[in-house]
Write a protein that binds this DNA or RNA. Structure first.
Lengths: 193, 193
DNA sequence: AGTTTTCATTGACAATTATCAATGCTATTT
DNA sequence: AAATAGCATTGATAATTGTCAATGAAAACT
């Protein structure tokens, strides 16, 4: 149990058997069927979720009812509404499963306990957030500085595995585009050889 | 010396006199005149900079020669090319001073020493990156889900102090717009009362 | 004080992207 | 196996944003 989780952890920090035991005691497994919610806007987000298996997304819904995808999460990634998790304010994002999922949940008290008692856990969290920050900054840079086709190429080269498992209209949403526009961009790129 | 820096640190974590002394020994002060570079694209970024006084920006230059602003940093903020800093790859961003600045530099070896020897430093870094991540996610959400006017309103309400110290065309760049478009958006908003 | 840069604004026009509506295909459900 | 829902594509048109050029004002420099 928790194979992917501990593999991810061990690849970043050294853990003693004792560390592992303590961490294990703070985790909760959870399965989710396709389309099921993990978190709904308005509820307080009480966990950080690690993806053992499957794909999820976080998103908001704007005034017109359009879904805007903030993040995808595949095996080995973390997903949460961090702001809600840390402040206990109502979540502004929804999170649901794009495929059937197996998750590892870290509750708020578990998270706080682990930060206090297992220094390596804090290190791991720091490294995770740092990578997430860098990735987000790259995404933002791509949005404000590249033409559409380059942005799509960029996306496909960085996340080919997302492309294969997520419908195109969600990728359009992630890129801040309509599905029609993305379809046309792709057509242009294909025709250009 | 380093007043703003230690104020920021102490507001997030408890430090002993000893912690403070160790940290102090790892810092380097640096002054920068308006328009001076702190980092140029292609060089390896060898520090994280904390702003004691002044304003800086990080940005890329696209194929057409247009500057695209990634981040502003005011008093109390950190700025760096994190990816370059962590991997020692050449920087993809430029950083320069918008006003005369006083900075506190944390070199790579200082950073690593402090992470190893002062647990509270790691905690502070974790908290800083976490806030930066959340802020970036909000910025991204705003870009992909709001109409231009709302985005500008959003920006002005979150960062009124940036607005006052940075020329408008840089704010346009930060928002991924041309200066002309931002000027027109503002006009529309003002005329609408 | 005078010169030079930098900056914000405006206009005319072009390019890009969104919207709305329709179609056919595929996967899922019953 | 049939019915339904989800999905990608296309066309016509509208809305948004960018580009290029010009102007005047303010700020920085000498």
């Amino acid at each position: 149990m928790y194979e992917v989780f501990f593999q991810a952890l061990k690849s970043k920090v050294d853990l003693t058997e004792n560390d592992i035991a303590i961490i294990k005691a703070h985790l909760t497994p959870k399965k989710l069927r396709k389309k099921q919610y993990l978190l709904q806007e308005g509820d307080v987000c009480k966990f950080v979720a690690f993806v053992e298996k499957g794909v999820l997304r976080s998103y908001t819904i704007d005034e017109k009812g359009t879904e805007r995808i903030i993040q995808f999460a595949l095996e080995g990634w973390l997903i949460s509404d961090l702001y809600s998790f840390l402040t206990a304010e109502p979540a502004t994002y929804n999170i649901d499963a794009i495929e059937d999922c197996e998750l590892v949940l870290i509750s708020k008290t578990a998270h706080e306990d682990l930060l206090r008692t297992v220094p390596k856990y804090e290190t791991w969290i720091r490294l995770q957030i740092t990578s997430a920050y860098i990735a987000l900054q790259k995404r933002l840079t791509s949005i404000i500085s590249l033409a559409l086709e380059e942005r799509y190429e960029n996306f496909t080269s960085i996340y080919p595995h997302i492309l294969q498992r997520v419908p195109q209209h969600m990728i359009a949403s992630y890129m801040g585009l309509t599905p029609e526009t993305l379809s046309r961009v792709r057509k242009k790129m294909i025709s250009r050889k």
